[in-house]
Design a protein around this nucleic acid. Structure first.
Length: 535
DNA sequence: CGTTTTTGACCCGCGC
DNA sequence: GCGCGGGTCAAAAACG
């Protein structure tokens, strides 16, 4: 397994890009033979490796500074001037020697130092700029969400009054999450479930936590009091609902909770991503417990169970797409009964957000307005989510295989509700659950959305145009936003080791103030990187 | 030797 | 009721 993860590192390593740009050879990295390994056994999907790499890279940069000050061996490597070593290390002595050397050696050294300082300064400036952009964007997103939610409430109330029908949102949320759901449910007066009230009360002011109704449970479980979104499995509800599928034992608690009224037992989140690796590393430990040949697909479907904790009900299926075998389809079910590492939280956030967005989108469609109208050809909408209502279980599909500029909805089956999932433009959607339910008129959304889009457009363009830049930027952002301590210190080698080293470090610790962005970034960019074929 | 993977058998739901 | 397909179990094999 370790090998696998090292290969993951290779695959997603951002260092290549940085090195290329810096033009400074990195011997420490070159020492790693893994770096050239062409094969990837497991694809690191939402890895925090970026963070570790980033720090590695960052420390490397610091080292570079020091080395340059002390007479960098790097420059030795580059053959600039070996004699500089002596100069810096022993200035007093070297003065005399210096006079013998060409004057331009000093000048060259100085120029290099200045250049380095300039680069460092620029680097810092860029980081702060990026930080600022992120902050601004988050603020905008928050405002957008609030505005949308208010409008949504008004519209829904009007519609309910006119149609005399139960809130579509409610039904859809039940569709996804049989457990009591939160903010959007305020539209449904018939909802009197205690837990629903609880959750609704917790987020009565706005519906930014639309996605987090599930997470609220997790929050309570894993770190009470912290108002930080912790998600573990996008289909959070299924720690109970998972068992409902076949296992009567696990089904009991759930049936008690939701009763027999809820027609949907569970939801799934499926992720399509291009990957040569047979697995995507999502931050959890999985044990394979079965494999089946699925009908209509020459590739077998593998069944995995989460082994990070005893009795964890989360399972996933991994299968290659029959049409395009380079596409790996990973389907998650259930929610973890244990704390999660950041990477798993990230993917959970992603899937959860996708689910919520998708559901709301489909809801809106029901109102006659295509859900796609709310994300009209966003330039950063490189992913797409679909909800397959015809599937045995509601299944959200995050399609990360499409190019960023690909026209969304091309793959949209007529029977599914879908919309582009702006993973890159809305990283906070994934982690902060600042999800704007698209049940409001599209025009305001468009205005705000386009404004927001303009903020990230440039970055996104760069991201989408250069896969390497994706990884590099992810690393940079992770650094800026303060990667979770557990990851920073531990995720040096591979994912699973990281998970183990975090050793049950509660996800909340990873979701400390400010860190959600880190997770999001990780999620977002890892996702993006995932869609970039390694070969 | 403990853990993980493999793989055939079994169970269950669904459609006919 | 039967067959089919998906999903799971569990013993054996493989692996580290």
């Amino acid at each position: 397994m370790e090998k696998h993860h090292r290969r993951e590192l290779t695959f997603l390593h951002s260092g290549d890009f940085l090195r290329q740009n810096s033009g400074v050879p990195d011997r420490s990295l070159d020492d790693s033979s893994d770096h050239v390994k062409p094969r990837i056994k497991e694809m690191d999907f939402f890895s925090t490796q970026y963070q570790s790499h980033d720090h590695h890279q960052e420390s490397k940069t610091d080292d570079d500074d020091n080395n340059n000050n002390n007479g960098s061996s790097l420059f030795v490597d580059s053959g600039v001037n070996i004699g500089l070593n002596l100069l810096s290390s022993s200035p007093g002595v070297s003065r005399a020697t210096n006079e013998e050397k060409p004057v331009n050696s000093n000048a060259e050294e100085g120029a290099l130092k200045i250049e380095l300082e300039t680069l460092n300064e620029e680097n810092r400036r860029l980081r702060s700029t990026l930080d600022q952009i992120t902050k601004n964007y988050n603020e905008l997103q928050g405002q957008l969400c609030m505005a949308l939610q208010k409008k949504a409430h008004r519209n829904q109330e009007q519609k309910d009054a006119v149609n005399g029908m139960p809130s579509t949102i409610m039904s859809v949320q039940q569709f996804m999450d049989p457990r009591p759901s939160a903010p959007l449910d305020v539209n449904e007066p018939s909802v009197s479930d205690d837990k629903t009230q609880e959750l609704s009360a917790a987020s009565q002011e706005n519906a930014m936590e639309v996605v987090s109704n599930e997470r609220d449970h997790r929050m309570v479980q894993s770190m009470p009091g912290k108002h930080v979104s912790i998600d573990d499995g996008g289909t959070d509800q299924s720690s109970q609902s998972w068992g409902s599928l076949k296992s009567p034992k696990l089904d009991q608690s759930k049936s008690e909770e939701q009763g027999s009224e809820v027609p949907f037992r569970k939801a799934r989140v499926s992720i399509r991503a291009r990957s040569e690796a047979p697995l995507i590393s999502d931050g959890c430990q999985w044990r394979k417990y079965g494999q089946k040949m699925a009908k209509g697909n020459p590739c077998p479907r593998a069944y995995y169970r989460c082994t990070m904790a005893v009795g964890c009900p989360v399972r996933k299926q991994v299968q290659r797409c029959a049409d395009d075998k380079s596409v790996l389809i990973t389907t998650y079910e259930g929610n973890h009964n244990h704390p999660l590492p950041a990477v798993a939280t990230a993917i959970a956030n992603t899937t959860s957000a996708a689910a919520a967005m998708l559901l709301s989108g489909s809801t809106k469609s029901k109102d006659g307005l295509p859900s796609s109208a709310y994300f009209p050809s966003l330039p950063y909408a490189s992913s797409m989510a679909t909800l397959s209502a015809s599937a045995p279980f509601p299944t959200i599909t995050l399609d990360l295989t499409q190019g960023p500029n690909a026209v969304p909805f091309l793959r949209q089956p007529p029977s599914t509700a879908s919309f582009p999932l702006p993973l890159h433009g809305y990283p906070q959607l994934l982690g902060n659950t600042m999800f704007a339910p698209p049940k409001v008129p599209s025009s305001p959304t468009m205005q705000l959305g386009q404004r927001s889009a303009s903020m990230v457009e440039t970055v996104t363009a760069a991201i989408t145009s250069d896969p390497n830049f994706t990884a590099a930027l992810a690393a940079a952002i992770s650094t800026i936003m303060g990667a979770p301590p557990g990851n920073n210190g531990n995720s040096k080698v591979n994912n699973d080791e990281n998970n183990n080293s975090s050793n049950g470090v509660p996800a909340p610790a990873l979701a400390a103030p400010g860190s959600p962005q880190a997770q999001q970034s990780c999620t977002t960019f890892s996702t993006k990187a995932c869609s970039n074929k390694p070969g």
